[in-house]
Design a protein around this nucleic acid. Structure first.
Length: 294
DNA sequence: GTGTTTGTTATCAA
DNA sequence: CTTGATAACAAACA
């Protein structure tokens, strides 16, 4: 579920809450989530490590860990939330009720039936990794392994490297495939997913299934600006809680009310009143206004 | 029972 | 080689 703005929101929250904290104990209840390590290995290796940094690359959360001793190897816990993952920090001990935000399955407390990992900090706080569908993962790795894992990812759309020229060269490479396909490919642009691709296409007035090589320079410019602005605005709203996503304090993001096309099929376009269409394209539900987008 | 779902990867088909 | 479609992972919901 989480795309760039949701992951970024969680990372910014965790920077404020867990950096500097030491892991006291770890509980894992689903082996696949922490593979290739076994549950026991994962629990033992994380125990006693201190969190030195939290960052993001593409849709991956990177928790940097340093052991207390100076000679120790730095470790990195990389977490991918995939479709339904949540990462929630609670500062107090014991069972916490997520205020007013029932989780999938109706659970309202922590830990719950979808909690796959619980990091317990020495000062009593808890970091819960919940994942209803069990697609997400948390992998403990060395610096080399981390670099190898992150290497294939493309340009960060909120970085200075995301230029019109880069976008143009990507679309050239995708020639007769659609722009949605191009924007979806994490090896070229990192962090976009179904929601923000549809939204950025609407904002820039381009149909998502349009052939990539047919875009004019001015359309590429508009699309780039739309991608940047929709991501920034969503981060400001703390992300889109369309289904499972919650922020690291367990609250919902507020971007749903800004959505122009995603999830609005059959409703009136906010610009022209035409009904929003939904088709299947690139294997995903694809939303657009047939009047505003060409 | 049917179809759908924010992510990603593998495999098959044209 | 290119491209698209589908299934798979697994679970909930309408």
């Amino acid at each position: 579920m989480p795309e760039l703005p949701e992951v970024e929101t969680i990372v910014r929250d965790l920077k404020k809450t867990i950096v500097g904290q030491t892991i006291g104990s770890v509980f894992v209840d689903h082996a696949k989530t922490v593979a290739p390590l076994t549950i026991k290995e994962f629990e033992l290796q994380l125990k006693g490590l201190k969190i030195s940094e939290v960052s993001r690359r593409a849709k991956i959360i990177i928790i940097s860990l340093n052991q207390i001793s100076k000679t120790a190897i730095p470790y990195f816990l990389l977490i991918h939330l995939k479709m339904t993952g949540q990462l929630i920090f609670t500062p107090q001990k014991g069972k916490i009720v997520i205020g007013g935000h029932p989780q999938p399955g109706g659970a309202t407390d922590l830990p719950n039936k979808f909690t796959r990992i619980n990091l317990k900090f020495k000062d009593g706080g808890n970091l819960y990794f919940n994942d209803m569908r069990k697609f997400g993962w948390a992998r403990l790795m060395t610096e080399d392994e981390k670099n190898k894992t992150l290497k294939p990812y493309g340009v960060e759309p909120l970085s200075v490297y995301f230029t019109e020229d880069i976008l143009k060269s990507i679309f050239t490479r995708f020639k007769n495939r659609s722009i949605k396909k191009a924007l979806f490919d994490q090896n070229y642009i990192a962090g976009l997913g179904n929601i923000y691709i549809d939204e950025a296409c609407f904002i820039s007035g381009i149909k998502p299934d349009k052939q990539a090589s047919l875009l004019t320079d001015s359309e590429i410019k508009n699309l780039r600006n739309a991608i940047i602005s929709v991501l920034k605005l969503s981060i400001k709203s703390r992300g889109t809680s369309a289904r499972n996503y919650v922020t690291a304090d367990g609250t919902k993001g507020g971007f749903v009310k800004h959505l122009k096309v995603y999830g609005r099929e059959g409703k009136e376009c906010k610009t022209c009143g035409t009904l929003i269409l939904k088709i299947k394209h690139a294997g995903r539900g694809t939303h657009f206004c047939p009047e505003c987008q060409k």
